[in-house]
Nucleic acid binder design. Structure first.
Lengths: 214, 214, 214, 214
DNA sequence: AATGAATGAGAATTCATTCAT
DNA sequence: TATGAATGAATTCTCATTCAT
């Protein structure tokens, strides 16, 4: 229970949830991420949560409502640090070298990812099928992060630390590499043993210098 | 109809399919990739295919059967060139430089991807939920490709063209970058205008030299 | 609010109702008469009344209880004047001519009908399905009115003002004509413009002399 | 079964209905007319019809669909004779006297009414709550009949057989009297003994000459 | 007295699958 | 081989009613 409790707190820190509501959320996250949204029945969630099926619908008008109420707050969490911290730190010269910025970014995104992994899985699964989600994701998340990252990139380009290339391409390549790492690490091969510090270092080095021998 | 016909031919080149079977497959691919496997009803597929509901079950014992019969052949297509061509070409010194190999790889994978995009989407969507699929994919595809690629990497490393790093990490980083490109190009932002040759070149350069200014 | 307040006063003049109770009654009348008893949910009534769902059941043990508590007092109102006034007035020679009696009857029934129209609708709707209601209605209302009216009819027949015909038939024909008028006027075509005085006159004339040309 | 079979034939003479469909219709008519549309559950209908609940929804997309498919054809039956027969007979001088026309009208409407009484009940019950029904009824039935009747009335007025009064009022008074009779006869007091010929005669006489003593 | 969360039975509807034709 | 009516279990959702606060 403690881990799920944590997840809930992470996601719904401000909102007041009744005890049953929490149980419903936990059960729903578990089932959705294990079997997918469509393949999960509300009766199953109710049983797992130990509540009556009607109780679910008292709190969430529809099944989709439940899904959105779980996934939507994740979005905020995902953009959090970009909005608040990183950008300023770059400007404040806290991350003088690109490497430092990348490392820090990977590290703090990894934490969120681990804690909210099941919800992230749900989000990834459902984005293609839920227009509301997709829109929210692209408008609020992808775009914002992209803009923010583009600015940061331009900053480093002006300092002569990054090659001249349209910021969008730079962003795509860098983000892709980072997500590729996190995805391999936590989704595709979580069962393998990973030396996280080493792989992070490698990923950063890769992004900076590629795979070719100098 | 011609495009779907093409897809079908690509996927089922050896097998004999009746006319109705083809229609069912086409309809199923369309629906599965649009709404997901679980959210698609067989009656919907039947309607779209213009056949009776019973006809589907004459050809495919269950709904999952239908899914597997669509997705399984894709796997073979995905590993095709690695098995047959590329490796030998590398050994034959056809791709003397890593860059050439990467470029060729990206190019011919892109073609398959475009033609079979809907089926690829279905595969990606369902891998997490269908143990048979996951197993098939990991054992037959991911592992094979990884092994093959590792060998190729070692070859280039021995020739002093790639940095010294465990081949798995090299593979991960390279594959991730390529898939990241293809994924951005065809799944996330197909609506943007892409200069494919340029972006391929950039991706290759990125893999080789990274983003840092020399 | 004032019109509903009026309706409530009309229906529950003697009883003490709390503020919430009044709101519940008003909301229930509105919903029942708009959508029918079965198709109206208690939660809907609660919302419309601005009270908690539980509050309804504090005052009315069941939903049907609520219905009966609304409809039952209407019955008393419906027979009111027959019991109290009209009959005596006829005996007292206040209505010497049948025409005067009919006119007065139509007029004062019309008032009640307008004020309590929504409740009348509910009664009409539910009589076929609620045995308690039907029984109450037939035993206490229909029969009483019929008896009373029969006496009046006999009175006028004895005075030679009405044709010789079994009083039940006379009653049926007369009542039918009056109700037919009120029903057309207020239920079927309330949106048409009606010259009430003229139509009342026509109805009375029709009852007395029919449609044939003398 | 024979009586219901008859009703079905009356209502759906042209359409091809499967055996189960007929059973569903019969069961639905029975239940709807006994308990009302909203208070009848589809599972109840299924049980009564001896079919699986799913079977109902194979033939009728929704419960309301079922209702409409039962009630809609009634409308056609209701206006039938006015459209086809009566009017022409009047013009053809078959009904030279108003009395004859009235008598014939009452008689043939009574037959339809008896055979389709349960469906008529459903129609009356649901018209206030189903806008589609209401509209259909007013536009297609009420209006048509009214127009037709108005013409007939004018015809008799010109022949000097009916008093001068706006045809709408004449129609209202006459129709009201006829329906009042049929309603009393079949809906309100079917349990009483009725001498139909006598009461029809009385109703006709009433319409022509009223209740006053000449 | 009033609330509103919780319930569980039951509502309408969907769905994968079967089977007689 | 193909059909599509039929099924009955399961699904989402509603609702009257209860009860702790």
């Amino acid at each position: 229970m403690s881990e799920e409790e944590l997840m809930i707190q992470q996601l719904f820190n401000e909102e007041k949830l009744t005890d049953k509501q929490k149980k419903i959320i936990v059960a729903a996250i578990e089932s959705f991420s294990e079997k997918g949204y469509s393949a999960t029945s509300t009766s199953e969630i109710a049983k797992k949560a130990g509540v009556a099926e009607g109780t679910i619908f008292r709190h969430y008008k529809t099944k989709k409502d439940l899904l959105l109420s779980i996934v939507a707050p994740l979005m905020t969490k995902l953009i959090g640090p970009f909005v608040v911290n990183d950008f300023n730190k770059v400007l404040d010269r806290k991350y003088d070298r690109v490497e430092d910025f990348l490392k820090a970014t990977i590290e703090n995104r990894r934490e969120v990812l681990i804690k909210l992994l099941p919800v992230v899985k749900i989000l990834l699964q459902e984005i293609p099928f839920q227009p509301e989600l997709r829109e929210q994701f692209f408008e609020q998340i992808a775009k914002k992060i992209f803009d923010r990252v583009s600015l940061i990139i331009k900053g480093y380009q002006e300092k002569g630390e990054l090659i001249e290339m349209p910021p969008e391409s730079v962003a795509r390549l860098a983000i892709t590499s980072i997500l590729g790492y996190l995805f391999s690490r936590y989704v595709l091969f979580p069962q393998l043993e990973w030396d996280d510090e080493l792989e992070t270092e490698r990923t950063v080095q890769f992004i900076m210098h590629g795979l070719g021998k100098k």
